[in-house]
C-alpha cells in the first residue's frame, strides 16, 4: 500500500495536497485497492462552485462497489480532471498523481487540522486490515 508522505488524509480515504492557495484532492491507494477495478467516475461539482469541507464532490464506482467522494477541505473549485472521468482505470494506476480529481483555490488558505498526516493515516489503514 502506498501512502504519499506529504499529503493529508480524511477518514473517508480522500487525500489533499496543499500548495499555498491551491489544493488538489484525490482518493488514496488504499481506497482504490479496496474498490478494486474502477469503472466509473462522476464529478458532480463544476468550476466556480464554492464548497464547504465534507461536501459531496462525486461518485466512484467499481464493478462491486460504489463510493461517494467528499472534499476534505473548503474552497472554490478551480479545475476538474476530465482525464480521470474519461479513463476511470487511471485511478487504479496512479491515485496520487495523474488521477487527482479536483483542484480548489482559497484566498484564506486551507484548514487541514482535522485531517490525518501520512503516519496517522498509515495506522488508520492498518487497523482496518
Amino acid at each position: 500500500m502506498n501512502i504519499h508522505p506529504n499529503y493529508f488524509y480524511s477518514k473517508n480515504d480522500e487525500w489533499v495536497s496543499v500548495e499555498g492557495n491551491k489544493a488538489t484532492i484525490g482518493i488514496s491507494d488504499y481506497a482504490q485497492d479496496s474498490l478494486s477495478d474502477i469503472v466509473f467516475v462522476e464529478i458532480s461539482v463544476s468550476v466556480g462552485d464554492s464548497l464547504a469541507a465534507e461536501d459531496n464532490i462525486g461518485t466512484i464506482e467499481s464493478v462491486k462497489a460504489a463510493s461517494d467522494i467528499y472534499t476534505p477541505v473548503a474552497g472554490t473549485v478551480s479545475e476538474i480532471n476530465n482525464k480521470v472521468v474519461d479513463s476511470p482505470e487511471l485511478l487504479n494506476r496512479d491515485p496520487f498523481g495523474e488521477a487527482w480529481l479536483i483542484k480548489l483555490s482559497s484566498d484564506t488558505g486551507f484548514d487541514t487540522s482535522h485531517l490525518m498526516d501520512a503516519d496517522a493515516y498509515r495506522k488508520y489503514c492498518e487497523d482496518r486490515g
Binding site: 477495478d37 469503472v39 466509473f40 464506482e61 464493478v63 476511470p88 482505470e89
Partner: peptide, 10 residues
C-alpha cells in the same frame, strides 16, 4: 466460464 465484469462496465 467466469465473466469479465470490468469489461462489461468499461
Amino acid at each position: 466460464g467466469r465473466m469479465d465484469e470490468v469489461k462489461a462496465a468499461r
